[in-house]
Amino acid sequence: MLPSDLRVALFSGNYNYTRDGPTQALNLLVGHLLAQGTAVRVYAPTAATPAFRHNGDLVSVPSFALPGERGEYRLALGLPGAIRRDLAAFAPNIVHLSAPDPLGHRALSWARRRGLPAVASLHTRFETYLRYYRAGMLEPLLVAVQKRFYNRVDRVMPPAESMAAVIRGWGVTTPVTIWSRGIDHDRFTPARRDLAWRRGLGIGDDEVAVGFLGRVVKEKGLDVFAQVMAALRDGGVPARTLVVGEGPARDWFAGQVPDAVFAGFQSGDDLGRAVASMDLFFNPSVTETFGNVTLEAMAAGVPVVAARATGAVDLVEPGVTGFLVPPRDCDAYADAIARIVAEPDLRRSMGQAGHRKAAAFRWDTANQAVLDTYLEVARPAASRS
């Protein structure tokens, strides 16, 4: 079987209406597949104004905006007749599911009824989100739902071994292939560091810029971030928060960290400049399955202090490229950051070590692993033996 023999129906809860780590990974994957001659059709909710220009053919699935603080995201409840007819016309021979949402469940049932192979990738630890919205008591239920979903597919593709261990702990027995992530090494490099840009934001050359990078949402650990920065400020540590990104919790976060500098949403080479201009990257999130932002900081030569959680544990080498801290241990976070602030040589060596480690992460290699998995799962059973 050749890549050109594949016809992939990819289902996603978000493909182009909000820019985040999962959408970027999926779009890069589709670009790689198309370049190899694979036919791909994406089925996902859409919005009136896309966040960016997407790769490939996109079929809009009816959806509604989520209520409350996460109204920028949309939810599709199923596969209406028009979508089923489009699927029948496209005639996929493999289905890729990127989320265990209602659309993913309906698409999986559709594939199973037709005897089509199905694979699922993991991008977000949805069960951990509930902790930030006062619904933590529902976490076991959401884990059970995800366990059932991933046990119904032919292959699960987590982005790192730590996430593979998590789903095995849930009781998922489906075979696993790691779909790692890559980095744009021309964009994320220490060479893009720009002190003049920092000065324009009001950050002095003698201040250590502690960076936040990503969607400004509470589940990224913003409460812990704020408490740690307050402890550093009370301890006289010359650290300044630099926030790169936008999101619905921006105003709340600004109130919690009043001396923070908000650089707003950055993209392209401007994003590379913003990341390289940090002195330290702080990521207390426990919701990551991989942590693209952590890898971007490392590639830019920035040391990392992160939660000892999925994603970061696969990237950060404690004492070499940064420090890993027990989640929500604000004192330990503050101690780790204060040490890096106080020791410029350590900061420099950690940044250099992170840059070297990040060099091994390439998108072409990561996405080829997915294509190889498609070919293995999709080819007739008789040819596998």
Rank of each mutant, 00 (worst) to 15 (best):
residue 2 L to F: 11
residue 11 F to K: 03
residue 19 R to F: 15
residue 19 R to W: 13
residue 20 D to E: 14
residue 26 L to K: 02
residue 34 L to G: 11
residue 35 A to C: 06
residue 45 P to R: 00
residue 46 T to I: 07
residue 51 A to C: 03
residue 51 A to E: 03
residue 54 H to A: 15
residue 55 N to Q: 14
residue 56 G to L: 05
residue 56 G to V: 02
residue 67 P to E: 11
residue 72 E to N: 13
residue 73 Y to F: 15
residue 76 A to S: 15
residue 77 L to S: 05
residue 77 L to F: 10
residue 86 D to C: 09
residue 87 L to S: 03
residue 91 A to N: 14
residue 93 N to R: 13
residue 93 N to V: 11
residue 97 L to Q: 01
residue 97 L to A: 03
residue 100 P to T: 08
residue 101 D to H: 13
residue 103 L to G: 01
residue 107 A to N: 14
residue 108 L to F: 09
residue 111 A to Q: 02
residue 114 R to S: 07
residue 116 L to Q: 06
residue 121 S to Q: 11
residue 123 H to S: 05
residue 132 Y to H: 12
residue 133 Y to L: 09
residue 134 R to Q: 12
residue 136 G to Q: 12
residue 137 M to Y: 13
residue 142 L to T: 11
residue 149 F to W: 08
residue 153 V to T: 10
residue 156 V to T: 11
residue 157 M to T: 14
residue 158 P to S: 09
residue 163 M to K: 05
residue 165 A to D: 14
residue 166 V to T: 11
residue 171 G to V: 12
residue 173 T to M: 11
residue 180 S to Y: 00
residue 183 I to H: 03
residue 184 D to C: 08
residue 193 R to M: 12
residue 200 G to T: 15
residue 203 I to T: 01
residue 204 G to M: 08
residue 212 F to A: 04
residue 214 G to L: 00
residue 215 R to C: 13
residue 216 V to K: 04
residue 217 V to T: 14
residue 218 K to V: 14
residue 225 F to N: 00
residue 228 V to R: 01
residue 230 A to V: 04
residue 231 A to T: 07
residue 234 D to R: 15
residue 235 G to K: 12
residue 237 V to L: 07
residue 238 P to F: 08
residue 241 T to A: 15
residue 247 G to A: 03
residue 248 P to I: 04
residue 249 A to V: 04
residue 253 F to E: 03
residue 262 F to D: 05
residue 262 F to E: 08
residue 266 Q to P: 06
residue 266 Q to C: 12
residue 270 D to C: 10
residue 272 G to N: 10
residue 274 A to W: 01
residue 278 M to V: 08
residue 280 L to W: 05
residue 280 L to D: 03
residue 283 N to A: 15
residue 283 N to R: 07
residue 286 V to E: 03
residue 294 T to F: 04
residue 296 E to K: 04
residue 297 A to E: 04
residue 302 V to N: 01
residue 303 P to A: 08
residue 306 A to N: 02
residue 308 R to W: 10
residue 309 A to F: 10
residue 314 D to C: 09
residue 315 L to D: 01
residue 319 G to E: 03
residue 320 V to W: 03
residue 321 T to E: 06
residue 322 G to I: 01
residue 324 L to H: 02
residue 327 P to G: 08
residue 330 C to Y: 10
residue 333 Y to V: 01
residue 340 I to L: 14
residue 341 V to Q: 01
residue 347 R to L: 07
residue 347 R to E: 02
residue 349 S to D: 14
residue 350 M to S: 10
residue 352 Q to Y: 07
residue 353 A to D: 09
residue 356 R to S: 12
residue 358 A to D: 07
residue 359 A to T: 13
residue 361 F to P: 08
residue 362 R to S: 12
residue 364 D to Q: 10
residue 370 V to K: 04
residue 373 T to K: 07
residue 374 Y to T: 09
residue 378 A to D: 04
residue 378 A to L: 08
residue 380 P to S: 13
residue 381 A to M: 13
